[in-house]
Design a protein around this nucleic acid. Structure first.
Lengths: 212, 212
DNA sequence: CCTTATAGACCGACGGTCGGTCTAATAAAT
DNA sequence: ATTTATTAGACCGACCGTCGGTCTATAAGG
């Protein structure tokens, strides 16, 4: 019965399970006993590793963010592609599965959503700002407020999160269009950069369509 | 002890009290018993008028939104001022006391915040879009996406909500600057409109300074 | 004028859920 | 031998929500 694992390993195991549970039933509706049942550990064990249910949530979000941060950083440091393409890749990455946790169409997940949103912005914005500044140096972009533009775009992405707002197909199409339009405008994209963005967006149109 | 009132009246009385309590302690940390104690009614009475704690939250938010909607509509229908000034007045109105409820510097108010945010956007955006379209007709603004621009600006206002993000004074200054810059850009403001906006923003600079 | 009835507002003890604590025993690792 | 990880689950207390019953007002019937 008794299996001993390193704290790190056990923690990750628990986080795997709550990630699954929270995304399925939502944070509030997942009880601690659910987590226990699913992971087959005792209550004492859970509270040995985490100090509260919310602590588990924070840890899960932090882990998710850290993973994405690595992916984003990798894109940002890629020397073989333009800033415009980097930006596009990051947007694609983030729009996959909402900005945050997977498929929480549920309301009531405000805690998860809110926490994930603010933490993501704080952690991703600096890297994305780097990308914009690379683009400014290379002449692709031109804006007096790179950081603030990134933050704005980040906020705007909430509009496309089906867990927050529900739109019709047509509304969604318009909103995606508008998003790209605002992107060009606020970043002051050069004609070349625009062309590249549209080329990329054209190729993988699924991005905007999967997102509902 | 027993005082009998009409349902409407009692409901409003309760909503007055929860408005106060939720803004002071937050939704999650306010217990139903707190509401009872503060309003001097019994539990059964509360649940006679509302079906759940969350129902109370919804009702409170709905009432707040309805009030603001009246104010915004009034501004939108004012025939004596320009669209630029209308927009400015609406922004001022909304930024007063955050986008939503007053002074919830607390985290953990995600429920209140989230609900209020989405409901506000859905209810206010149409009226604000009207204002933009008036501005387009009068030549003050020019944009292919009036509705989407409004939504974007609305989302962006979260960045200035001290209950969501905490910035230094300098950061906040920059963000307000950036906000106005993006406003001009996305709405395609004419030089006249820009000038008017800056005149108005200059006069009541307190707006951006009170907001922290 | 005096009962009787009906409805709607009101009451508060109680039930059930859920997060979190505590204890006491135990096994593996160092 | 001490520390670290684990187990099992009884127990606690805070909370939300329910339920049976009560009070008041107004109206109808005698």
């Amino acid at each position: 019965m008794r299996v001993i694992k390193e704290s790190k390993e056990r923690k990750n195991e628990i986080l795997d399970i709550v990630e699954h549970l929270f995304n399925e039933k939502g944070y509030a509706k997942t009880t601690v006993d659910d987590i226990l049942k699913e992971s087959g550990i005792a209550k004492g064990t859970l509270y040995y590793h985490f100090k509260s249910k919310e602590d588990i949530l924070s840890a899960m979000i932090e882990r998710q963010i850290e993973r994405r941060k690595q992916s984003i950083r990798q894109i940002a440091e890629d020397k073989t592609i333009s800033a415009a393409e980097k930006l596009f890749q990051v947007i694609t990455l983030l729009s996959k599965s909402g900005t945050l946790a997977d498929g929480l169409h549920e309301k009531e997940n405000s805690e998860l959503h809110q926490k994930s949103f603010t933490r993501s912005l704080m952690r991703f914005a600096p890297i994305m700002t780097d990308i914009i500044e690379q683009g400014i140096k290379s002449g692709e972009f031109s804006t007096p407020y790179p950081r603030e533009s990134v933050e704005l775009l980040f906020c705007a992405s909430q509009l496309h999160d089906p867990g927050v707002f529900v739109w019709t197909k047509e509304e969604r199409r318009r909103k995606v269009e508008a998003f790209f339009w605002i992107l060009e405008l606020t970043l002051g994209m050069s004609d070349d950069a625009k062309a590249e963005l549209y080329r990329l967006a054209g190729i993988s149109k699924e991005v905007s369509e999967n997102n509902g």
